[in-house]
Amino acid sequence: MENFSFLLQTSYKIRKSIIEMLAEAGSGHLGGSLGLADIFTCLYFSELKHNPNNPSWEERDRLILSIGHVAPVLYATLAYAGYFDTKELLSLRKINSRLQGHPGKDKGLPGIEISSGSLGQGLSIATGLALGLKSNQNPARVFCICGDGELQEGSIWEAAMAAAHYKLDNLICIVDRNGVQIDGTTSEVMEIEPLTLKWAAFGWYVSTTNGNNIADILNTFDETRNILSKPKVIIASTSMGKGVKSIENDYRWHGKAPSKEQALQFLKELEHGYLHY
């Protein structure tokens, strides 16, 4: 599978950049960014209809990053997809940078659909987008990336209710189910299970996938693509920090950046992991 090895290689480059960017910035969210690298690779290099040379193309699929704090994975993916030079990645979180700590649309970075960073709002944005696209008879789809801890925000469920009410089958929500948030596991902080039943009860088509397995992710996209008259949610199990063995699933790495020395160690672990894939 040529495509598969290309995607695998791309996810490696994205992860490598995430570690380098955060070490250079000295702050940021490492764990969630690494955990989402496979999903972002599959989205931007396979599933999304988009054109890096024309970011405002009317019929592009939209990606709404509700969890703005994993901006590094979005930035790295956009750069490798060709939206801007990968050299700019190292300006993350610095003054006058287009790469804000959380995505800031006003800074004009190509490929950013919306400023985000306050949790619980992305799914409502995506719902409005999906409604508007349908009304304009635009065939584009809307993908919304939510965190699992983020589902504790009440407004997410207001949006979930509305998206099902309007049968928005052009809306796909991907829940990054890594089971971890800043204070600890989601089970300890505030239980969100039973997740599948909750979404189904709200009228959504529910699918689950291994969000760190490229083949699984692509299969799930295939499966959900043709489901009609319902919004779709993909609950994607991921490991926070995926790719760097020593920090995988460690909630202390949710909102932390590695030091430059740690980064060298992490990059070695990353390379080792991919060599033995």
């Binding site: 939209r62 409005g128 009304s135 304009n136 207001e158 209710m161 509305a162």
Partner: peptide, 26 residues
């Protein structure tokens, strides 16, 4: 051209933002 969203103001305002991204004036 009217979307009833129920008693859910936070969603209403944010859905409006999403609609605005598609060229609507909500």
């Amino acid at each position: 051209r009217f979307y009833s969203l129920g008693i859910a103001e936070q969603n209403a305002i944010t859905v409006a933002a999403g609609l605005a991204l598609t060229g609507k004036i909500p």
